[in-house]
Design a protein around this nucleic acid. Structure first.
Ligand SMILES: [Mn+2]
Ligand SMILES: [Mn+2]
Ligand SMILES: [Mn+2]
Ligand SMILES: [Mn+2]
Lengths: 217, 217
DNA sequence: TATATAAGTTAGAGTAATCTAACTATTAAA
DNA sequence: TTTAATAGTTAGATTACTCTAACTTATATA
């Protein structure tokens, strides 16, 4: 039985290594992601290694072992199912779901997870466009680009967001943007890569930082 | 902000003093109810007193102060709403809901509680027949007897159960009993107060202990 | 290749919740 | 009213998670 905290560390490791081509994570990076000090992370890493959930040695990189990855996927599955529940059934907006799902993901009941999945109609994606791991622990990574990689004159469809924070999501809505919206890139400032885009006939200018947090196909 | 554990202590105090005419609880009783040692309860009582949530002094009885009672009622409201959700929407049986609700009752989100209430159609009772406290913290205690107090020859209607444990609830179902069922008391053994009862034409013999855990009107 | 910088670890301490063992106060009986 | 039983507390230790401050190792660059 894993503690609430252990689950959070494993999920963080999974998410840090989920970006394509990444297999391992570092101590400081993990600590920053979780909002704890590196010393704290080091202590927990020893514990997770003892439980055979991660591969790790002093001053070395961290990788998930199969058991650790399985647990992390279960937590991520619950997180994304609960976000979908809050969004679809509880009238939450997409910038409100993450915080509460962060708590709900630790509820222990496999029956509840599976009934929830059924109740929601076996959704494949959460409200932010992220894929929901299956009961078997499969997580399909869809090949996708960021809005910042789209050439001037090209069009694309928004499929997900990288940043899940409330201020970012609220800004996305304010721009008239959302999952499945078609975005046309009208121009790119050579100086700072600012983008001029058009969505549903509405033109906006967004920063490179913003464009890097919008996933498109 | 109360910890998970503090919430459990306050809820336990509320439930111990909920039986009519009771205002105060004792340390050992509280410890037994929560499954901890009396020494542990003493430590927590000092902390809750410090936070002005309870009235308590060395070797004295414990009572909830208004702020403590308010928090306890909020937790109890969430517990019973989640039990109703699990029973009505997640296909849980009434002996399965309590354990998971024990976890869900600690989720912090007033928006979620109120949306859940709305989603369930503002239920007044949980699956065990217990009243659900309102958002304003009101809890109506319905005057009710136990099955053991019914005279031979009389009939009554089951409205709730006192014991919420899975083995007890499974036994209730096995006897063909449930909320709103009419029960007729056919006979009472003078020796050990065993009852012979009839439900939907089905006759059964139950112990006094059992009869004391069935609430009727 | 030496050394400065970044990355990571260790030691020591604090808080929250729990326990055991020994003790003290209250209450009920003899 | 003394004493036995019950109820409750204290002291000291443990586990989980976190921190700060000082230290060590790895790496990158000059
Ligand atoms: Mn999220
Ligand atoms: Mn979490
Ligand atoms: Mn319950
Ligand atoms: Mn609880």
């Amino acid at each position: 039985m894993l503690s609430y905290t252990e689950e959070n560390y494993l999920k963080a490791l999974l998410q840090l290594t989920l970006e394509e081509g990444r297999e391992e994570a570092g101590t400081n990076e993990l600590a920053a992601y979780l909002g704890v000090k590196p010393a704290t992370a080091t202590a927990m890493l020893k514990k997770l290694r003892e439980k055979e959930l991660i591969e790790y040695e002093r001053y070395g990189k961290i990788t998930l072992r199969p058991a650790g990855r399985k647990s992390a996927l279960e937590v991520l599955r619950k997180h994304r199912l609960w976000e979908t529940f809050l969004y679809e059934k509880m009238e939450f907006t997409w910038d409100e779901v993450h915080e509460v799902a962060e708590q709900l993901e630790h509820i222990q009941s496999s029956k509840l997870v599976n009934k929830l999945d059924k109740f929601l109609g076996y959704p494949k994606f959460d409200p932010h466009g992220d894929p929901i791991p299956t009961a078997e622990g499969e997580l399909k990574a869809i090949p996708r680009k960021t809005l910042s990689q789209i050439e001037v004159g090209e069009s694309c469809v928004m499929v997900a967001v990288r940043d899940n924070s409330a201020p970012f999501l609220q800004y996305v809505v304010q721009l008239g943007l959302g999952i499945n919206n078609k975005i046309k890139v009208l121009a790119r400032q050579p100086y700072d890569a600012q983008l001029e885009i058009e969505v549903n006939g509405q033109k906006s200018t967004v920063s490179q930082k913003f464009a890097e947090n919008i996933f498109v196909v």
